[in-house]
Write a protein that binds this DNA or RNA. Structure first.
Lengths: 66, 66
DNA sequence: CTTTAATGTCAAATAAGCTTTACTTTTAAA
DNA sequence: TTTAAAAGTAAAGCTTATTTGACATTAAAG
């Protein structure tokens, strides 16, 4: 599943560690999601969407997965 | 995390097994999500949203979680 | 060029999502 | 009221998400 996390983060001049801090997850989790190692849990996806004030569908894109 | 899965399903007169079949998951997975035993993965949430043609935020509600 | 912050990655451990099998309880209809 | 379908539940096992800790690579600024 592709996502816009890196774009949204860098637009705000946040480091992976900054974003991780705001979301209460580890820096490695942010890195893994940005690098498409795995998808976030649904609750984490909600938290991300809320932080960026965007619908989940505008941040994550499942068009090829499953 | 609360969700509208049971409502959406019963509105269509689908059994848990029907829905599970369309989503390619087990009947127990549908039951567990409806009974709030756990949250679906993000890819499954996308699949559910696509099936019901609704935004994820209109099916799932994280207002109290995390 | 060198230092330092940021990013990438890996391994081991734990937690959460999901499956299968199997059984019990509820619902509803004949 | 019996029967069958649907829903609920539970255990064991597998997969994926997340953490921590550690180390390597990249970038960018002095």
């Amino acid at each position: 599943m592709k996502n816009q996390l890196k774009l949204l983060r860098t637009q705000r001049n946040w480091t992976q560690a900054d974003l991780a801090g705001q979301l209460d997850v580890s820096r490695q989790t942010i890195n893994a999601i940005e690098k498409d190692k795995y998808d976030p849990s649904l609750p984490l996806a909600f938290k991300i969407a809320k932080l960026f004030q965007l619908p989940i569908e505008e941040i994550f894109d499942d068009s090829q997965s499953m």
